[in-house]
Computed example of a mutant assay.
Amino acid sequence: MLELKNVGKSYDEPGGTKLPILDIPHFRVETGEQLVLVGRSGCGKTTLLHTIAGISRADRGEIWLDKINLASLSEAGVDKVRAAKIGYVFQTFNLLPGFTAYENVLLGMTFAQGRKDPPRARHLLKRVGLEHRSTHKPSALSVGEQQRVAVARALANKPSLLLADEPTANIDPRNQQMIIDLIRETCREENISLLIVTHSPEVARQFDRVVKLEEVNLANREALST
């Protein structure tokens, strides 16, 4: 379903040298599988998610999603596949402040399908317990409510893969479990593969598969050995 082969990514440092961030010989996520990615701060977890989603392009390697090599596509081609097949829950929500919760979810559908599906938007907002807040803009929602809208928007296009970057980091402890349960249950119901990044041991221990980035990323091993 998702497979990375020899994926490398580095950043330019001020002196002109390259700082390796990702060097992943192989990494795979099966259809419908749910797994957690953990690792020390700054080890490249978010960079990996961005690279998979095509927000940041890999320097080399292959990134296969549903038999499509994203690394071989143009920028426009990657954007099209991402909109159709990938949902992304950002740590900072990235909701549009001028739009209501309902409109934010509808907008996610427009990017993917070019058309809106109001019944699904209403279903997703009900699924996250916000049908009564659907006409509220982000500034009128609590932090936890904004994250729930972000989850609904990420699921709007019925993606093959959901990427979630620290989805409980900005949520109060009361709502953290609800967010994780919501994401996992919806992915299970719709057979969506889930890759979630978290620093929370409480979240990680709920998953059958927990991957330490250092175990699959050779750049991390080199950094840790110096």
Rank of each mutant, 00 (worst) to 15 (best):
K9V: 11
N170P: 00
K18Q: 14
A156Q: 07
L107Q: 02
S134H: 07
R122H: 14
L224S: 12
V128W: 00
N191M: 13
L163Q: 08
I180G: 11
K67G: 05
P159C: 03
K80C: 04
N191L: 12
A150R: 08
P118D: 09
S193Y: 02
L125E: 04
T100C: 04
H26V: 03
L95W: 09
E13C: 06
K18V: 04
G16V: 06
R153I: 07
A164D: 14
R174F: 06
I196N: 06
S41H: 09
L96G: 05
I183W: 07
K85H: 15
E189W: 04
P20G: 11
P97T: 10
A140Q: 14
I21L: 10
G144T: 14
D66F: 01
R184L: 01
L162G: 06
R40K: 09
C43I: 04
N217W: 05
T46P: 02
A101S: 13
L194Q: 11
T100V: 03
F93D: 02
I171T: 11
L107Y: 09
Q176T: 04
R153S: 09
E3G: 00
K85Y: 14
V36T: 15
L163F: 08
F111T: 10
P201D: 15
I68R: 13
F99Q: 10
K126F: 00
V211I: 15
L35A: 14
G77R: 13
T135I: 00
Q147P: 03
G54R: 15
A156E: 08
K116I: 15
L195C: 11
A150S: 14
T51Q: 03
E131T: 00
L163N: 11
T135N: 11
V7S: 09
A140I: 01
G61M: 08
L65Q: 15
Y11K: 03
P20L: 12
I183S: 10
D181E: 15
L195D: 09
V89Y: 07
I192Q: 11
K67L: 03
Q176K: 08
T198M: 03
E166T: 02
L19R: 06
K116C: 15
V29D: 08
R221K: 07
E33I: 13
T51C: 02
L96P: 01
G129C: 04
A140L: 05
I63E: 12
P14D: 09
Q206I: 09
K137T: 11
I86R: 10
D12T: 05
V151Q: 08
N220A: 10
Y102M: 06
G32L: 04
I179P: 01
R174A: 04
M109H: 08
T47W: 05
S193T: 05
P20R: 11
K80G: 02
A164R: 10
L141Y: 11
M1F: 12
K212N: 12
A219H: 07
